[in-house]
């Protein structure tokens, strides 16, 4: 274990350094993205004003605002762009340099990205989540934050990230066969935005569609942790959802290993 950490922690450090160098860009980028949440905030305010009812499909106005912002923040923690990195390296042939080194292919990506995530967590996640909690305090008039719920949320987020990581590794290895990934990467993120319930909460969908999507692994990318954060799941349901997340993580870990060994037989480095 110590040797393992000694090998891979430098990658984390490199990730932190890399992300630190571009932190201003990153924050500006984030502000551009979060605009969408503010637009939707106003849309929901108008919806609740027009409907005259205090809930919409079981969501109150406050729920909706928390859902919007926490979904966005969760996305920042769980997204993984390893697939793009693998794709790029296949294209430019740098993959060869990675394959000849005595370190594990996926672990280097994982630890590097964890470094970036730790910076995202401190620079964006913590301040924004504090904002969400302050908003909740002012609407409910009391502190609603519970350490237990938050711990479960973080556990769920961690598994979402692992799932996202291994799914993207599987996807990234498709670059071995497809040669260019750019279009597929965009297509994938569009489909995921829908399937993960980050645009339309799954609770708003027709019952049959919703139950199918809840069992699919993609809902765990954003919907499951956010629902846990909002306390929408009972203890038993939350446990079931977390178990399901765990199963999918293991499943995709195994698939990624199989694809890797198959892909390495196929690799052709283009050009010198």
């Amino acid at each position: 274990m110590r040797k393992f950490l000694k090998t891979y922690l430098p990658f984390t450090r490199a990730g932190i350094h890399g992300a630190t160098a571009y932190r201003a860009n990153f924050i500006a980028w984030f502000i551009g993205d979060i605009m969408y949440c503010f637009v939707m905030y106003y849309v929901w305010r108008a919806v609740f004003a027009s409907s005259g009812s205090s809930t919409f499909n079981g969501f109150s106005m406050t729920d909706m605002v928390v859902f919007l912002f926490v979904t966005n923040l969760t996305g920042y923690l769980t997204e993984s762009d390893g697939s793009f990195a693998v794709g790029e390296e296949v294209r430019d042939g740098n993959i060869a340099m990675r394959l000849i080194k005595p370190v594990s292919f996926d672990m280097t990506f994982l630890f590097n990205e964890l470094g970036q995530k730790s910076l995202t967590f401190t620079l964006i996640f913590v301040p924004m989540l504090a904002g969400v909690e302050i908003y909740k305090y002012f609407t409910y008039g009391r502190v609603m934050f519970s350490i237990g719920t938050f711990a479960l949320y973080m556990l769920s987020v961690a598994m979402s990230y692992m799932f996202s990581f291994y799914m993207n590794v599987c996807f990234g290895f498709m670059a071995f066969f497809l040669k260019n990934l750019w279009g597929f990467n965009i297509l994938k993120s569009s489909i995921l935005r829908f399937l993960s319930g980050s645009v339309i909460p799954l609770a708003f969908m027709p019952d049959t569609l919703r139950s199918v999507m809840e069992w699919l692994p993609f809902s765990s990318l954003s919907y499951t942790p956010v629902m846990i954060y909002m306390g929408k799941y009972s203890g038993q349901e939350a446990a079931l959802r977390l178990m399901l997340q765990f199963v999918w993580v293991i499943g995709f870990y195994i698939i990624s290993k199989i694809i890797l060994s198959a892909a390495l037989k196929h690799v052709t480095v283009q050009g010198g």
Binding site: N180, G183, S190, I191
Partner: peptide, 15 residues
Amino acid sequence: YKVDFITGACSFLID
């Protein structure tokens, strides 16, 4: 890169 173009257009449509 025809495939990239088609997939890019599809994803926009889905969104």
